[in-house]
Design a protein around this nucleic acid. Structure first.
Lengths: 192, 192
DNA sequence: GTCTATAAAGCGATAGAC
DNA sequence: GTCTATCGCTTTATAGAC
């Protein structure tokens, strides 16, 4: 990867930046993630950061959010909507979620933003993320035999339980809370 | 509580300050709750605030946290531990929680602090709050007939569901999520 | 006990050299 | 594309008048 007076210029390193930014936002929250911390985490000076993200911190958080949303869309939501075995898709969701959140050691940035000071700033994408999660899961549950109302209630309960488990795991500093919640969820989701 | 050069002077207004501070912290998070906002919400200048809380924002948040903890201890935890009808105590917990969190319109400050930047600052009281909640609820469940392990799992699930419901209600800007979660919880907790 | 004024530090963001 | 230097503002916290 080179600069090459002209032509191409992939600047793909920009994409590699987002996961780093995500961890800073997760660890310190939106307001706690100062440009100094971000600069330290990425090894880039403020000048470079503003070169990549002219919109500053807001743009950084927005793009991180979009990347997370995209990951869940392809890895979690889409499989739930696919017309395959719905029970297998639900099981895959649970293992995927467990991996993504590092078995409870990693917090949900979307939830952090929802509770934080900047919630109004990101209200729309935050709402959309959870709405699509619930809808996708409800679709799978419906295909597995539940009626529409039960599927919606059970999907909401699942999404909420995952968020709560992450909060409690962090609060109690005990990641195992998350694993227990996922196990409980599995039996609850796959029950008749 | 005394000053006494001049009789009385209870300075009890200090206690009346805490709920106001609590709402500011809830609404803006710990770092988002600037002294300017706190000054505006309380109608007190910075000088007065530092007169009441020489430790500044940290002390304010710590005392608010202690007050919340005390409220839950007397209104929620203690009844769960009392040797009365455990099922009635659990039902009372749910209605008390619903009232405290304004049916989902109010967020849990303890959870906010757990996820926020200042989590290390308040790690001990935050952990203690959730631990005592779970223990008290598990005791009631045990008295209602469950074995120790089931009681602990079900209590953890309940505490986590309440937190998750508050997160999701805020994220989706739909307080009714909370009411549905409490209803679901009632059947789950009181089930055989 | 309450205020205003101010100190000292950190913040996000910008400018411009290289 | 990356850096340093710096601006303008806000932050927490303190000092001191009243």
């Amino acid at each position: 990867m080179k600069t090459r007076p002209s032509v191409t210029k992939p600047s793909t390193d920009r994409a590699a930046l987002l996961p780093l930014l995500g961890e800073v936002f997760r660890a310190h929250g939106y307001e706690g993630a100062s440009l100094a911390l971000i600069s330290e985490a990425t090894g880039l000076g403020k000048g470079s950061l503003y070169h990549f993200f002219p919109g500053g911190k807001r743009q950084m958080a927005a793009e991180v959010l979009a990347e997370i949303d995209g990951w869940f869309e392809t890895n979690i939501f889409a499989p739930l909507r696919a017309p395959d075995d719905p029970r297998a898709a639900i099981a895959a969701m649970l293992t995927g979620v467990d991996a993504y959140f590092r078995s409870g050691a990693r917090v949900c940035l979307v939830g952090v933003l929802a509770l934080g000071h900047a919630r109004d700033e990101f209200a729309a994408p935050v709402n959309d993320y959870f709405a699509r999660w619930q809808d996708a899961l409800a679709a799978a549950l419906r295909r597995s035999g539940l009626n529409a109302a039960s599927a919606r209630r059970r999907a909401e309960d699942a999404v909420l339980s995952i968020q709560g488990a992450l909060v409690l795991a962090r609060a109690r500093d005990d990641a195992k809370v998350f694993g227990r919640a996922l196990a409980e969820l599995q039996t609850r989701l796959l029950a008749g």
